[in-house]
């Protein structure tokens, strides 16, 4: 791993664990797939284990699981109202997946699933696909009223509608870029500062004393990364709820 310390990007490399080829498509089982599976197993295992006792006086684990549940439920109800609760399974799964993926990525040598934009973009496309599909299924052509703001003079409606459509289509991109950029930047920064410690302490006594500074920085950054892991999972959830709200009530 000595070569890694000069290359903070190396940690995001995808490696094939089990090469699979179906026709023209490469569907190999990679380290990213492995950690996605680990995330799903961990999140499911934790929730099943924590809620299995169903005690009236909850154990510590059960309290954590209940907190996660009510946190997401409150967020969804605030953003999308009572009708939004039909999407609770989706939103809760998304929240747990992103949160556990972010947190697992903080363990050294573990792969961070959410630091790849294709992963976060797939999640965002899933959300927007559901918003569009549900909106059209529920409201039919009325759903497109979302793009035609009221109180705009007729002459400006084509222009404003075009801008609104582009703004709507840009949502999955901004949703995925935000999560991915935060995780990527955080991990690179952490790696760079940790790399300083190694390089400096290899440079003799003065370097060893000097390496205290980047070491302190790395410790502080780790704490910050925990905050970011929670915050970004929360932001992803809140935005999902807001977009679902548009599908449920497209401005009427």
């Amino acid at each position: 791993m000595a070569a890694d310390k000069v290359d903070p990007i190396h940690q995001f490399q995808i490696t094939k664990i089990l090469p699979i080829q179906v026709g023209h498509w490469d569907v190999s089982f990679t380290n990213s797939s492995l950690f996605m599976a680990v995330v799903v197993i961990l999140a499911t295992g934790f929730l099943v284990m924590a809620s299995s006792s169903r005690a009236m006086v909850p154990s510590r684990w059960q309290v954590v699981a209940e907190m996660a549940y009510s946190f997401v439920a409150d967020t969804l109800r605030d953003a999308a109202g009572k009708a939004g609760m039909q999407f609770f399974p989706l939103v809760f799964s998304l929240f747990m997946f992103v949160l556990v993926a972010n947190l697992i990525g903080l363990v050294p040598y573990f792969f961070t699933v959410t630091s790849h934009i294709i992963v976060t973009f797939s999640l965002a496309i899933l959300v927007i696909g559901i918003v569009i599909g549900f909106g059209i299924w529920k409201h039919g052509f009325h759903f497109f009223n979302l793009f035609v703001p009221k109180g705009v003079p007729a002459a400006l409606i084509p222009l404003v509608t075009l801008i609104e459509i582009i703004s709507f289509l840009s949502r999955p991109i901004s949703l995925s870029v935000r999560l991915f950029a935060n995780m990527l930047a955080g991990h690179i920064t952490l790696k760079v500062f940790a790399g300083f410690v190694v390089t400096l302490s290899a440079a003799g006594a003065v370097g060893t004393v000097g390496s205290i500074l980047p070491l302190a920085m790395a410790v502080a950054l780790t704490a910050l990364e925990f905050l970011v892991a929670f915050l970004q999972a929360y932001v992803f959830t809140v935005l999902t709820c807001m977009y679902l709200n548009d599908a449920i009530h497209p401005g009427h």
């Binding site: 582009i166 840009s170 870029v177 935000r178």
Partner: peptide, 20 residues
């Protein structure tokens, strides 16, 4: 955190331009 704020605004703006 300031960085979260920065990525939020930057991603919102860039996403619009990219989609356009």
């Amino acid at each position: 955190a300031g960085f979260a704020q920065a990525t939020k605004i930057a991603s919102e703006f860039v996403a619009g331009v990219i989609v356009g």
